[in-house]
């Protein structure tokens, strides 16, 4: 449980950066190499490599070897652990609150009538 919490902490910390979130969003659509990812951002390839290192340490992505290429992949299991925990709760709460927004909207309309 503690190990799990530390892993979650690392993952959430890693996702605290907008570039790393964008990298994860890009990888959710399929694998990509560092060069391909570097093309997406106005930062150096070295900076992209560092971000990838942080995501790798957080267990969110893995890298494989494919000849000369070393593509990055999103680890679906790691994401599932994230989404099934607090983000899962957040999604459930958010969905509930949006329904409540709609209920409150009808209450306001009723009162204006």
């Amino acid at each position: 449980m503690v190990d799990n919490e530390q892993a979650l902490d690392r993952a959430f910390t890693a996702l605290g950066d907008p570039v790393r979130r964008a990298i994860v969003a890009r990888l959710s659509r399929g694998e990509a190499t560092v060069n391909e990812l570097a093309d997406l951002f106005p930062i150096t390839k070295q900076a992209v490599s560092r971000h990838i290192g942080v995501l790798e340490d957080a267990g969110l992505i893995t890298r494989s070897r494919d000849g000369q290429r070393r593509p990055c992949h999103l680890d679906p299991a790691a994401l599932e652990r994230l989404t099934s925990w607090i983000d899962g709760y957040r999604l459930a709460a958010e969905s509930r609150f949006r329904k409540l927004d709609a209920v409150l909207e009808t209450l306001k309309e009723e009162e204006e009538r």
Binding site: R21, S28, L79, T83, S84, G88, R90, L91
Partner: peptide
């Protein structure tokens, strides 16, 4: 949190992407 709340997620990948796009 882990059991009761996770069931709402049918496609965790897609939803995480949505969350990330929103800058959560």
């Amino acid at each position: 949190l882990a059991s009761g709340m996770s069931h709402g997620i049918n496609d965790s990948m897609e939803r995480l992407t949505e969350l990330l796009a929103k800058g959560v």
